[in-house]
């Protein structure tokens, strides 16, 4: 049953991810990325990461995708350009990567992880959100503050980049 659910999510994720790259219209690409985000959130739920699933839907699907769609519709580009035309380089790189992947896949079985300490051992005591909160505000308190700083810098950068005439007025 678990395997069936995993294969459903994995299949939809791979399908929609390739649609993001293959589709011609950027709006369709963004919408198929939305479907992919929802299925990644479902995958997180099967991995007992419920908090991250909620965050994935709220932040990615709610904020980031809306920003993408806003910019796509703001720019309204109708030109039909699609792929680069660098066939030889592409074929060479693709064959190299394919050979590497096949080599790594068939070289033998991967590392063994302890099946006895599986997913049930951690979130059974406290909930997933409480556990993440405790780790986040004790061990990772300093990176958490740095993350807030990154968001502040990104906000200032976005405002400066898009505001017209903010650089000229200084000089």
């Amino acid at each position: 049953m678990n395997t069936l659910v995993f294969f459903y999510f994995a299949g939809v994720i791979v399908l929609t991810a390739s649609l993001v790259v293959a589709l011609r219209n950027p709006i369709y690409s963004a919408l198929s990325l939305l479907v992919m985000f929802f299925h990644v959130a479902g995958l997180y739920v099967t991995l007992h990461a419920e908090f991250l699933a909620a965050i994935q839907i709220i932040v990615y699907a709610g904020a980031i995708l809306v920003l993408y769609l806003f910019v796509v519709m703001l720019l309204n580009v109708k030109r039909e350009e699609r792929f680069h035309q660098q066939r030889t380089v592409g074929v060479f790189l693709g064959l190299t990567l394919l050979a590497e992947g096949l080599l790594l896949s068939f070289r033998g079985e991967g590392p063994k992880f302890g099946r006895e300490q599986s997913a049930e051992s951690v979130p059974a005591v406290v909930g997933n959100t409480e556990g993440i909160g405790e780790v986040l505000y004790s061990t990772y308190l300093f990176p958490f503050e740095i993350a807030s700083l990154i968001l502040l810098v990104a906000m200032i950068g976005a405002v400066i980049l898009t505001k017209k005439g903010i650089m000229e007025s200084k000089s």
């Binding site: 991995l47 007992h48 990461a49 908090f51 991250l52 965050i55 994935q56 932040v59 990615y60 904020a63 980031i64 992880f113 302890g114 300490q117 599986s118 997913a119 051992s121 951690v122 997933n128 556990g131 993440i132 780790v135 986040l136 061990t139 990772y140 990176p143 993350a147 990154i150 968001l151 810098v153 990104a154």
Partner: peptide, 21 residues
């Protein structure tokens, strides 16, 4: 999930922050 360690999920949290920025 497989190693029973919550640090990975905290890292996903940070990756999300960086993605938003």
């Amino acid at each position: 999930s497989y190693l029973g360690n919550l640090s990975g999920q905290v890292f996903v949290f940070f990756a999300l922050t960086v993605a938003a920025a």
